[in-house]
Nucleic acid binder design. Structure first.
Lengths: 199, 199, 199, 199
DNA sequence: CATGAATGAGTCTTCATTCAT
DNA sequence: TATGAATGAAGACTCATTCAT
């Protein structure tokens, strides 16, 4: 019995996860989840008190971790010598780990959370990244227009780039390699960018 | 009469456009459109047979143009000397023009079409871009893993980058400047990328 | 075992009583009762076959007592000399005792029974009181309109007045004092009333 | 058509009013209203945007009037000579008029509004009446316990007494007569009360 | 005895669409 | 053409109750 309950609970979570990943939170109905889990709609509510509850049970832990990463990002002492390689190395390490460990949960939060209270997480992350880049620009006396657009673009592009590898069902190794590659790609564009503008 | 009719048709389209851009297709109801257009809900159906119809009338033409651009993209003779500057110059020209001319329609198709039969257009576009890049890679004997990811990433990044400037209500000049800037950014990352890998 | 069972039975009844008093019968769910009693919802049905059953077990005895009082009330020999002081003295005595002894059960029946088959008890009681007063009126040759309204009003007013003191968590003494006070209040209005009309 | 619409609107309001009066707001479902009005449940929402909306359309105007009466009640200058006859004469006049004119709406607000934002109106009214009586007590140096109970009781009793006549389907004349009678009844009980306590 | 599992009927509300006039 | 009227299917959620273990 205890076992059964757990089985169904897991079945619900798996069904919901699959559906959320496929259709997003809003376009996934309790009916769909119930049908996929092979139980009645009302029985769902014996396991989770609301649709959002299911979503949170799937993403809670990762959401906290994301917030932690964000906090670290903002802590980064900006006074020290500019070393993107180092910075991005740390970033890439930390990020790759979390991305690989929590692939689906990450996607839930970043791509499928419209309608939940996590729906702005990606935008917030991008915003903070952008702030970070703008600060870098300023420190290097670079001024392209208001810097706003380029920093936002790089932030978005990086963010989406980090998510892209986990959107496909590939091996951890494949993900790791590609993330590293894309970071390198950005470093190049970025560095060149500084050179061009400064010189 | 005929004139009046046309006025209403236009009013409907304008109202719908504004609402679709604000809320997306799915989250815009016929009620909202009717109210904004100042006519009755049922009268909408004298002008358009369904909600999707309104969306199509707003995006048809641009959608065709996009398809055309896509076709040209794929026609591009791959035999000639590799010249991304040239290629991207053409691309940037052509694209900037269409982006500026059809700002809102572009956004409708790319950002607000979930729920319509155009909802995959952006992904298709990205896919074709990716194909294109992969071909380039091949022609230059570059092989990074399966080339799949980097080409996909660059395609996505470029796509989103091109859309980003028109998401804000800025001057044509601002849009043009930023698109050029971001293309340059990519050329840098791109070129360097080849160099690194080749050398 | 038997002891345990009894403990749970009591726990259920106490929990239900508290909840019924707070929210009324309809707005109290089996879930709430189970949670408050610390047992499973389905186990409730091993003790009581339905929600109404719980309510009945809480109010049965008092309901019977009320019916008895009502019977006595109607038995009251109408032939003897009209002595409301005496009558009400008996009434007040009898009533105060039952009100104090069965405070909560009384409130359950009178204030919280909507949705159960006792929901009309208060109205019935008032109706009988009214009948009684009408009889008195008749016996004293008083005729105010059809006597209907005033007798009903006095009945209602008395009823509510008797319930009001026990609605608050005060001492028995406080209840007793206030019930006496309100009966006196009514005797005054009542007596004067007769005087006015007769003279 | 315009006529039809109005007919149905009226039909809905009448059906809803009858059901609200019979079962109260909470226990009346949109299904019941629709069925009674002879239309589909969803069609209700073309006329009223929510269940509460229907209730408000039925009670809005009267609710405002009640608030006005309440305001006047509080304005009453307490310094002048104690003249309950005069005070209650005004009260009875004003009240009788509103009670007769808006019988059903009054009952909706006072008896059937649980679940709406008007659900506390009766209690508020009683509370203000109570405050008023307590003030009177104080001015006449009467102190029965804390005066709280008796003033509350008289307030409640009066309130319920005023409502009682309109709870039945009788003539205006019948209502008027009975309200006057009950006020007289209270004056007697009240006056005597003062006398007893003071002397 | 106890409970986890299950459900069907019900709650209010939304919405794209149809139809008669 | 224009619109008021109408609706069925769907949305999330609640609840008293049943049943197998």
């Amino acid at each position: 019995m205890q076992v059964l309950k757990e089985e169904i609970r897991i079945k619900i979570l798996e069904s919901a996860k699959a559906l959320f990943l496929q259709n997003g939170f809003d376009k996934t109905s309790m009916n769909m989840i119930a049908k996929k889990a092979g139980i009645s709609k009302s029985n769902l509510y014996n396991y989770f008190s609301a649709k959002e509850e299911i979503f949170f049970h799937l993403t809670d832990r990762v959401h906290t971790e994301i917030r932690t990463v964000l906090a670290h990002l903002l802590d980064h002492e900006s006074g020290e010598a500019f070393d993107y390689h180092k910075y991005l190395a740390w970033m890439s390490d930390k990020t790759i780990k979390i991305l690989i460990k929590c692939r689906e949960e990450m996607l839930l939060i970043m791509d499928c959370s419209k309608g939940t209270r996590y729906e702005n997480t990606k935008q917030e992350f991008i915003f903070h990244l952008q702030q970070h880049f703008m600060q870098e620009f300023e420190e290097h006396n670079i001024s392209i227009d208001d810097n706003c657009f380029m920093s936002h673009y790089i932030a978005t592009s990086l963010m989406e780039g980090l998510l892209e590898p986990i959107r496909h069902n590939k091996s951890d190794e494949w993900i790791r390699k590609n993330i590293k590659m894309l970071i390198e790609y950005h470093i190049n564009g970025y560095a060149q960018f500084f050179t061009d503008v400064i010189s």
